[in-house]
Design a protein around this nucleic acid. Structure first.
Lengths: 93, 93
DNA sequence: GTCATATGGTTTATAAAATAAACCAATTTA
DNA sequence: TAAATTGGTTTATTTTATAAACCATATGAC
């Protein structure tokens, strides 16, 4: 049986990647709301995705407020798609 | 976003369930080979699935040798299908 | 102005999970 | 009959996920 990329096989990280696959970019606050996660947990999981090169995290400012924006990378896209294919073999779809 | 049943969102347990969804029954040795897991890990995960009522584990004999046979329950089937539906919403499929 | 609260996070501690290692009983094989 | 194999279980270890505590800046109430 195919391996399920453990970095993607995690509810929160998968949710983040799933969102990012469908939008140009998403910021921390949006991801937090959409995924209904705590800030701490989200921060940690974004770091992991970022360290793996699956997303880029851009810390900038809007006026005086910080704004952390995330985008999926090509590598992340590939990994996600591979993960989906692997999963399909488990789900009979 | 939908919750992903944590009992099923685990590679090994999902693999076991996936196999059991497609066969009448499967024994410990077969599951171990198919999933390429260690006996200890498999034993633990089968217990969890069994405690949740997702599978039944039947410990019997074939001649003098023990034989542990597993089957998915109706409850397990339902949970699996719900999990698949939830996952789909993450995968864009 | 300054005190309290909110916003947008990060870091660290804790809880839970997965996994492997050690073990056990029975059986086979040499 | 001693050693190895089979079919597991139990327990210890490692990894992971999650939450709690914290920090800096900003904003609003008085």
């Amino acid at each position: 049986m195919k391996e399920l990329n453990p970095l993607l096989h995690s509810q929160l990280r998968l949710a983040v990647m799933s969102i990012l696959m469908n939008v140009e970019e998403a910021d921390f606050v949006y991801l937090k709301e959409k995924t209904e996660s705590t800030a701490g947990n989200l921060s940690v999981q974004l770091d992991k995705l970022s360290s793996a090169g699956y997303i880029v995290v851009d810390k900038g400012f809007v006026g005086k407020k910080t704004r952390t924006v995330c985008r999926v990378t090509e590598q992340g896209r590939d990994a996600f798609e591979e993960y989906v294919e692997a999963l399909k073999s488990y789900l009979n779809i």
